[in-house]
């Protein structure tokens, strides 16, 4: 049986994903997640005992390169898209306690 997604599961997941769902959108996501989890339940029909998980698709192994410093993005460029910046830095709300 697929686990049932409840309001409290959605609250917990939303916090982990740094999203928020309220009112109608919360009811909708609960319904959709339950629907999708019911659909993927199908996989349990397949016996995968002893099958190793497939974790890498590329056949490249330890593709190493020389550890050289290359300046390919300037600080100016890196800050170009920042919504708020201050000379050399990204500006964010205060993170240290009062």
């Amino acid at each position: 049986m697929a686990p049932v997604i409840t309001e409290s599961t959605v609250d917990k997941l939303a916090h982990l994903a740094r999203l928020s769902f309220e009112g109608e959108s919360k009811q909708k996501i609960i319904k959709d997640l339950n629907n999708i989890l019911g659909f993927v339940e199908k996989l349990n029909e397949l016996d995968t005992e002893g099958v190793p998980a497939l974790t890498h698709i590329s056949s490249e192994i330890n593709n190493l390169r020389e550890d050289k410093v290359i300046q390919n993005i300037t600080r100016e460029d890196a800050l170009k898209n920042a919504p708020k910046k201050d000379s050399f830095y990204f500006r964010v709300p205060k993170v240290i306690g009062e």
């Binding site: 686990p3 997604i5 599961t9 959605v10 917990k12 997941l13 939303a14 982990l16 994903a17 999203l19 996501i29 997640l33 999708i36 989890l37 993927v40 996989l43 349990n44 397949l46 995968t48 099958v51 190793p52 998980a53 497939l54 974790t55």
Partner: peptide
Amino acid sequence: MLGTFVLSEGFQDAYFTKAQKVRR
């Protein structure tokens, strides 16, 4: 949200790892 669920504590083996096995 679905991705966060399948990677969350207690469900990762049943969903994510299972899917990686089926992928193989």
